[in-house]
């Protein structure tokens, strides 16, 4: 029981990841899909950041009287990953807007069917 609880951060990650992935799989609405994707990515960010936490460690800013710092590298990495995630979200939402203009709907459910043609 203790081990399960002591890994609670990973459980949160797993649960968030599953919810996000389920959204991507099961939701037809494109905005919801993008949100699911965000959730999915965020779970990974938490994974990185929580791994960088050292018990008893302080925020990784150099100051007087503090010896033990958390690992700063994951934060830096995740800052970059967040930027990437934001960009992805932006592109995804922009595409959603364009799809709404072109099709009049953002339900991914059989959107392509109305175009006659070569999808088999």
């Amino acid at each position: 029981m203790m081990t399960v609880l002591s890994f609670f951060n990973y459980w949160i990650v797993v649960v968030l990841m599953m919810i996000g992935f389920y959204c991507v799989i099961a939701r037809g609405n494109m905005v919801k899909k993008v949100m699911g994707l965000n959730l999915f990515q965020t779970s990974v960010f938490i994974l990185f950041i929580s791994a960088g936490k050292i018990v008893g460690g302080s925020t990784p800013i150099v100051r007087e009287g503090v010896e033990l710092y958390s690992n700063p590298l994951p934060h830096v990495l995740i800052l970059t990953a967040i930027v990437v995630g934001v960009a992805t979200t932006a592109v995804g939402l922009a595409l959603t807007v364009r799809i709404n203009e072109a099709y009049g709907s953002i339900e991914d459910d059989h959107l392509g069917d109305e175009d006659d043609g070569d999808e088999q």
Binding site: K33, V34, Q41, V91, L95, I99, Y103, D115
Partner: peptide
């Protein structure tokens, strides 16, 4: 073709899942 948007969106979702 407007289907390019749809294709791009689907690629975006899958590509991001892959990258993640």
């Amino acid at each position: 073709d407007r289907r390019a948007l749809l294709a791009s969106f689907r690629y975006l979702i899958m590509g991001t899942v892959g990258a993640t």
